[in-house]
Design a protein around this nucleic acid. Structure first.
Lengths: 197, 197
DNA sequence: TTGCAAGATTGCAGTGGCTGCAATTATGGT
DNA sequence: ACCATAATTGCAGCCACTGCAATCTTGCAA
């Protein structure tokens, strides 16, 4: 009487996923801007109005699953020993997420393609990442017991997210001889050791 | 007969600036979303349609001047000796821009306030920064003579921009005992020396 | 199995950002 | 004083997105 997370919710999630797939398909065929909500709704067999009870924005369809990643990062972070140096803990947390990413290259690549060619989607994605950064900074501030006047948590959070984004981008666009987790870890190591070297 | 950069252009720039001021004023009074193009146009004494010959988007009014900063960074970067270590050159370039910022706190603070409370504007701003990052990375790749498979330029560009953004944000929100250029330089130094220290 | 409250879907009317187009007006420079 | 060029504008229209209220579904408790 507790294990089940509600049948209704599961249905909703499935539906959401289905709309997502249909929409992405259309976006790839005719382009993001050329695809209307009406078309997506028709293809997903729902009323246009209903679309907005699943997604706040047309942009969100492409980025939807991005939202959960932050939770994953914080989770990993909390599992690290409290006395571990912050940067090392961050490295571990982000490496874990990188592994997640690596298992769904295809899915990611499709979204990324749309994102890269659609300004509004790209903007929205960056905005989400900024949200991560903010939350992460707060989290780090607590972990480190830093004062509000200390720029360190913000700096670390911003850097970590930037590293992740740059690595992901490089991995998805450049001829990828290297695995993502490796790429991420190397980047963290380089920053750990100092960029002036 | 050459020095003048066209009288027409100067007029246009002035007008643009004026619309900007009027609009920001309205945004602060009634909020960004509650302000319509129609209202801005009325206040600036132009036709609504004309607004869009000055700005592509309502968002752009708030961020307009952001666009030029990148040029400044690249400019500063080009003035650094070619054999100077990349990270040090970046430090100098961004420090210069930080000085620019510092001279217009008030102007910046107003825009920043609107940006912070208006998702779409924030998103647009981040998108611009992503553009910087891209251009900067390409610039660095050339400067360093790096291969396309080398993630370094991207990493450095992403990190530098992140540092700048984090510093600016901290400077504008936290009780500012420290000057922005100092903040930026310190951050660059910390990354230069290594975050693992 | 059944009844119903809670939730999901939908239609409708409307707002407002943004665009293409074509007509009109203003103006810098010759 | 003239004119090519550029700026301004009105109009019609597209589409993302919203509030509201009505209708339909359905999980679940009795």
């Amino acid at each position: 009487m507790s294990e089940t997370i509600g049948l209704r919710e599961r249905k909703k999630r499935d539906r959401r996923r289905q709309i997502e797939d249909v929409a992405v398909e259309l976006f790839e065929q005719q382009g993001f801007d050329a695809t209307t909500i009406e078309q997506i709704a028709a293809a997903a067999e729902i009323a246009p109005r209903t679309f907005f009870s699943y997604f706040e924005t047309k942009d969100d369809v492409v980025i939807a699953d991005y939202a959960d990643r932050l939770g994953r990062i914080l989770e990993e972070l909390d599992q690290r020993p409290a006395d571990e140096p912050t940067w090392r803990a961050l490295r571990a947390a982000f490496a874990a997420v990188a592994s997640d990413y690596a298992t769904e290259v295809d899915r990611l690549a499709r979204r990324f393609g749309i994102m890269a060619t659609t300004p509004s989607v790209q903007a929205r994605s960056l905005q989400l990442q900024a949200g991560w950064e903010h939350t992460l900074a707060a989290h780090l501030a607590t972990r480190m017991g830093a004062a509000a006047s200390d720029p360190t948590p913000r700096l670390l959070a911003a850097t970590a997210v930037a590293v992740m984004r740059a690595s992901l981008q490089h991995w998805l666009t450049a001829p990828q001889a290297v695995e993502l987790p490796t790429l991420v870890q190397d980047a963290f190591d380089r920053l750990g050791a100092g960029l002036a070297r």
